[in-house]
Simulated scan of single mutants.
Amino acid sequence: MLYRRAGIFHTSYADDRRLFPIPFERWAMLALLAIALAAPFMFSSLALTSYIRPWLIWSAAVLGLNLVLGWAGQFHFGYAAIMGIGAYASVHAARHGVPWEIAVVLGGLMATAVGVVFAFAALRVKGLYLALSTLAMQFVMDWVISHVPAISGGVAATLQAPPMRLLGQVVKSEAGTYYVVLAWTVAVTLFMLNLRRSALGRALVAVREKDYAAAVIGVQAFRYKLVAFAASAFIGGVSGSMLIYGFYHAVTAEQFAVNVSIEVLAMVIVGGLGSIIGSFFGTAFILLLPGQMNAFIAWAARSIGLDVGVEALAHIPYMVYGATIILVLLLEPMGLGKLYGNVRNYLMVWPFGYVRK
């Protein structure tokens, strides 16, 4: 079978700690990378710009939120504000002549600074109180961005983003923009894969499980929580910049409002807390499925000759979509990533009977 471990011998610690110890998974990752590199030549311009590119950007952002929520176990209801800070900071820096690459990094650093400042106050509380504190940060940053003309230009203003420049050259083609976005998503994914098997990752998991027990074994819980918030904020800030340069091409306050924080949180939960592949699944489920479901229901109604009103046609997909989310969470509360893990574990030991226990 595909996931067999037969014939795999770990003769060193390096072999045992490989990212993909099973040969099938290594070949699958290489195949996915080849498809990703060939995507501009395989898919239409509409699919590339409207589906694949935003999916990659939001997946990187979801991985950043999963770092603080899934690995460190800290609630964060203000992630859209973090992304907005990075987006506005990078756009202003680029408009003032800063090279694009440095502007994006500055956006991430600005998001990190603001996120850490709020984390110092928020991490004095836990659980629902922490969630409420981060939600308050979201509302504060929404107000500041909207009502400070130096940042957003006004309450209803739209700030045009300068063109993306890589090494001084303007990236005009859709394929070029796609490859920049792909490089960022791959970098974040590799960081998260290596974090899982590092001392920092193990410390974050210890803090997530029980911070008092972690302190007993020498893990400074408050320090590692700050590190988680800082790293997550940097990823969110750069992802917010990528979202503007790679998809929207203009920035407004509504793009990073509180409803966006709820959507990103839903992507993490549906995909699975602490799951890397689940972050991609959850993003696709929340971001892409509603539109596809809307088109499918409209096509099905036409196919059977059912006369469905415009209002009903607008609300039925969301009803089915919500029911689908509930069904997925009832089937596997740990999300889509755990579903994939269940199938993988089943194939590893099939056909032996103890797999059903």
Rank of each mutant, 00 (worst) to 15 (best):
R26S: 02
A28G: 09
A28W: 13
M29S: 12
L30F: 11
L30D: 01
L32S: 02
L32F: 14
A34V: 12
A34H: 00
A34Y: 05
I35M: 14
A36M: 15
A36N: 14
L37A: 11
L37Y: 07
A39T: 15
A39I: 14
A39Y: 14
P40Q: 13
P40Y: 12
F41A: 10
F41W: 13
M42W: 15
M42S: 08
F43Y: 08
F43H: 05
F43C: 02
S44R: 05
A47D: 08
A47R: 08
A47F: 15
L48V: 12
T49F: 04
S50E: 15
Y51T: 12
Y51W: 11
I52T: 13
R53V: 09
R53G: 00
P54I: 12
P54E: 11
W55N: 10
W55E: 03
L56M: 11
I57H: 08
I57S: 01
W58T: 08
S59C: 14
S59Y: 07
S59I: 08
S59T: 15
A60W: 06
A60Y: 01
A61Y: 01
A61G: 08
V62N: 13
V62I: 11
V62G: 04
L63A: 12
L63D: 00
G64H: 06
L65E: 02
L65F: 11
L65C: 15
L65K: 11
N66K: 00
N66S: 05
N66Y: 04
N66P: 00
L67W: 03
V68I: 15
L69A: 07
L69Q: 10
G70A: 09
G70C: 10
A72E: 07
F75R: 04
F75G: 10
F75S: 14
F75M: 14
F75E: 10
H76M: 09
F77G: 01
G78W: 03
A80W: 00
A80G: 07
A80K: 00
A80N: 03
A81E: 08
I82G: 13
I82V: 15
I82N: 15
M83P: 03
M83E: 04
M83N: 02
G84D: 11
I85Q: 12
Y88P: 09
A89V: 06
A89K: 03
S90D: 06
A94P: 06
H96R: 07
G97E: 02
G97P: 03
V98E: 12
V98L: 14
P99S: 08
P99I: 07
E101A: 05
I102W: 12
A103W: 01
V104N: 01
V104R: 05
V105L: 13
G107N: 04
G108D: 03
L109F: 10
M110K: 06
M110E: 11
M110T: 14
M110F: 15
A111G: 12
A113K: 00
A113P: 02
A113C: 07
A113E: 03
V114A: 08
V116G: 06
V116S: 02
V117G: 07
F118N: 08
F118G: 09
A119G: 09
A119H: 04
A119N: 04
F120V: 15
A121S: 13
A122V: 10
L123K: 12
L123D: 13
R124W: 02
K126V: 09
K126G: 06
K126A: 12
K126D: 14
G127K: 01
L128P: 05
L128S: 15
Y129C: 00
Y129P: 00
Y129Q: 02
L130Y: 06
L132T: 01
L132G: 05
L132M: 13
